[in-house]
Every structure is written in C-alpha cells, then in structure tokens.
C-alpha cells in the first residue's frame, strides 16, 4: 500500500522546558506512512527533544502525541508496549556493551516479544544480514567500528518491526569515512517505505531521500517544505542562511 496517506505520527502543541529554558514551544506536526522527514536546525533548538518526546523517553510538559492512532501522552496507554514499535537510533549508538551484535539484536525479541531463543537468533541474524553485518554477529560492541555499531543499532530497532524509526543524529559521532555506510542503510530503509524522522545535518541525505525538511530554531518550527524548495528557494532568509551554511560544509 503506497498511498502514504495514513498519519503515523501526530504531534500537537508540544511543550517542554528544562527549568526556565524552553526547549519546545508548541510544536505540531504530522508524519504520514512512508514519509521521510528530516529535522534540521542549530544545536540546542529542541530537535532531539522533539524526537524523545515522540517516544516518551522524555516526558513533554504539555501537548499530545499519537503514534499509529494510539495516544502516547494518555496516561492509561501502556508506553512500554507502544515503544516496541517505535524504533530509535541514537547518536552514541548505545549498543548493550556486554552483549555481542547478535545478542544486542535478539535481546528485545526474547524479553519483549517473548520469542524462543532459536527463533530470535534466526531473526536477529536476518536483521544483521540486512545491514550487512551477518559476519560480525559474534563481535562485541568494543570490537566494531562506529559505523558498524550504528548499523547493529539500526538492526536492533528493525528487529522489533517498527512502524516508524526515529534517528537522532545517527552519523554525528562517526568519522567522515564511516558516515556513508550508515546512510546507505538508512536510504535502503526509506526506499522500502519505512516511515522515518531523522535529525541530521547530512544535507545530501535530506536532498536525495527525504520528502520534507523541517527547519527548527529556538523550539519552534520556522519553516518546512520539500527538499527542492527548502534547499533552493525557501521563504525565509534565515532558512536560506542556515541551510546554505550546512550545504557548504557537506
């Protein structure tokens, strides 16, 4: 079904403050099925906080969030159950350090989805294969490069069969040479129709893969639009200035 009309993520008037520092000032957005949205903006403008408020790793102060028509901000929602199907990839990978790649991927299958070990192992191997790391299944995080770690982390999320994937600066901690292998995996996912929200400054990825670029600053969405419009002819001078800067860099 490629209609892409179902709303997968809906955020309504989201507010979050740390002390007197307002990080999100009433963000609203919708992401439809199969859509790839890239969030850009200067650091400290709430992009990561927005992602983390979507899966409730950070509790918003006000506002509502729905994923797949389930309201996560409703206190009666089983948030653990909801998170099973919201994949998240972190800047610092956060692989489980005491487990090899295979066990990193299968841990959730066994303990969250209740699969038996054999089935979980097969599934985990398949997911590692999908990110090109089947041959690293026995390696521990400390034995993997940054790019490989991030691919394992993506496999770990994918194994849970997410309906949406949240990427929080997935390539920012990587050496320039290793960024490509992660972006390739993300691009493949996008092609397969995965719904994705990505905080990233990889402007090439935004241009080639995303359907929409959202520019955030000071906790607000300043401007959003298709990559073609945002990168060549945005409405606001500030958008042009910022996107121009990062385009130069990448």
């Amino acid at each position: 079904m490629a209609s892409g009309k179902n709303v997968i993520v809906k955020v309504e008037d989201l507010h979050k403050a740390y002390g007197s520092e307002e990080v999100l000032r009433g963000i609203s957005m919708e992401v439809t099925e199969g859509e790839v949205v890239v969030l850009v903006g200067p650091s400290g403008t709430g992009k990561s906080t927005l992602l983390r408020c979507i899966n409730q790793l950070t509790m918003p102060d006000a506002g509502r969030v729905w994923v797949n028509n389930v309201e996560l901000t409703d206190p009666s929602t089983d948030i653990d159950k909801a998170r099973q199907h919201i994949g998240m990839v972190f800047q610092s990978f956060n692989l489980f350090n005491h487990l090899n790649a295979l066990d990193n991927v299968s841990l959730g299958l066994i303990h969250v989805l209740g699969m038996d070990k054999k089935t979980a192992r097969d599934k985990a191997l398949m997911e590692l294969d999908r990110v090109g790391l089947k041959n690293k299944a026995e390696n521990y995080p400390g034995q993997l490069s940054g790019g490989q770690k991030q691919r394992v982390a993506i496999a770990r999320s994918l194994a849970m069969e997410p309906i949406v994937m949240l990427f929080d600066e997935p390539t920012s901690a990587l050496d320039p040479e290793l960024i490509g292998e992660v972006l390739v995996v993300m691009k493949d996912l996008a092609v397969e129709g995965m719904t994705m929200i990505c905080v990233t400054h990889e402007i090439g990825f935004a241009r080639d893969v995303s359907k929409r670029i959202v520019f955030m600053e000071h906790g607000d969405i300043i401007e959003e639009g298709t990559p073609a419009k945002m990168l060549t002819n945005p409405d606001l001078p500030r958008t042009k200035q910022f996107l121009g800067k990062i385009s130069e860099l990448h």
Partner: peptide, 15 residues
C-alpha cells in the same frame, strides 16, 4: 553504566 544503555533498552520496549 551510561544513561544511554537504559534509554536504548526502553526504546525497544523493555519495562
């Protein structure tokens, strides 16, 4: 143990 470990575990739906 870094806070990220807990977050990653919660993000795949662990209690």
């Amino acid at each position: 143990v870094s806070e990220g470990q807990m977050q990653a575990a919660r993000s795949i739906g662990m209690t």
